[in-house]
């Protein structure tokens, strides 16, 4: 494998609060190759959105404090860049699409202006040229009669169209990496379907890499090459999507996959994960999932976790990945 596009090594993000420091990301190590899609799955509070913002250095510091051995994008350590250099990376090399399209667009400016703004800043286009390219990009992301609608204001558009506009804005810099933070969560299922297909088409055309953050395992399974599963600020499992989804090696991944109601087979009861996700300010030593884990033992509660590399480009943070097989047996009987 050649040099990865993004290589994160031992990234930790802490937030200073009046009640002490909270670690939202703990010792994360992962890579994204050029052109691939990495899915980051986790529930609220797992730290998946914080990770995206940390990569782009969007977290205000203080209260946030980012430390890492390296946070290398195309060979440059993002943490060592000056603010002006970082601004050139943002929107140009790395772009981001947020969850809520309604708040990602400025309500007081026409959409066309907002799309062409990036073209003028990053590509140095003149007003008229930028407008023409903006129309082309809006057309490309599926806005019907874009030339007529380029001067519309955000409130005149539906949520799905606004998300297309946000994607158009992200594409103006011809990014090598697109961070998509729950890009379809606020949308209806048919619109989600359209947006996911659009993102994948754009990826095929431009060869950009995507980090797709989602709480939905199915979305990730349809769109991602590799998956990182996050829980309580740590990556608990990492590997090729098809492997993880068909044979998880962490009890959390296993339980998460089991707790989704499926379309094809009505089940009597859903498998559940007991208890609540932990409070990040009050984490016990040992595995953060241990209190909710059906196969945890005393060691799990005592020994701190680390992501262990396994054969076949996989990694798990579970002390006893072989116990997941027990879960399968138990569920079968």
């Amino acid at each position: 494998m050649t040099q990865p596009l993004l290589a994160i090594e031992d990234l930790t993000v802490g937030f200073h609060t009046p009640h002490g420091s909270v670690l939202a990301n703990k010792h994360l190590t992962l890579t994204v190759a050029a052109g691939e899609t990495l899915g980051i799955v986790g529930e609220s509070g797992s730290g998946k959105s914080v990770l995206c913002r940390a990569i782009l250095r969007l977290l205000p510091s203080p209260p946030a404090e980012i430390t890492a051995k390296s946070l290398a994008f195309a060979g440059r350590d993002l943490l060592k860049l000056k603010p002006a250099e970082m601004r050139k990376i943002r929107g140009q090399d790395i772009a981001m699409v947020f969850q809520n399209p309604m708040t990602s667009l400025n309500p007081v400016w026409p959409i066309g202006d907002q799309v062409s703004e990036g073209l003028r800043i990053h590509r140095g286009l003149g007003r008229a040229a930028a407008r023409q390219v903006a129309i082309d990009i809006l057309k490309r992301v599926g806005i019907p009669s874009a030339a007529l609608r380029v001067d519309d204001y955000p409130y005149q558009w539906s949520g799905g169209m606004m998300q297309r506009a946000v994607i158009a804005m992200a594409m103006t810099g011809q990014p090598k990496l697109l961070l998509a933070d729950e890009p379809t969560t606020a949308l209806d299922v048919t619109i989600q379907d359209q947006i996911l297909s659009l993102l994948m088409e754009l990826q095929r055309e431009t060869g950009m890499a995507i980090i797709l953050v989602s709480h939905d395992m199915s979305v990730v399974s349809e769109t991602c090459d590799r998956v990182a599963v996050m829980y309580a600020g740590s990556i608990v499992e990492l590997g090729v999507a098809a492997d993880i989804l068909s044979a998880p090696l962490h009890p959390y991944t296993w339980s998460l996959l089991r707790s989704i109601p499926h379309l094809d087979a009505p089940t009597g009861r859903l498998a559940t994960i007991g208890g609540q996700p932990p409070d990040l300010a009050r984490l016990e030593p040992g595995c953060p999932f241990a209190p909710r884990c059906p196969v945890a033992s005393a060691e799990c509660r005592a020994l701190p976790i680390a992501l262990k590399t396994l054969p076949g480009d996989r990694a798990t943070a579970c002390h006893f990945p072989e116990r997941v097989a027990q879960l399968d047996q138990r569920a079968a009987s």
């Binding site: 299922v189 619109i191 994948m200 349809e222 769109t223 989804l245």
Partner: peptide
Amino acid sequence: RALLSAVPKMTTVKRQRAAVTQGEI
């Protein structure tokens, strides 16, 4: 049928297809 096919499924194959519906409500 459109609703059912638009729901993302658990799969091991990455999606190649176009969206099942066009346009908006």
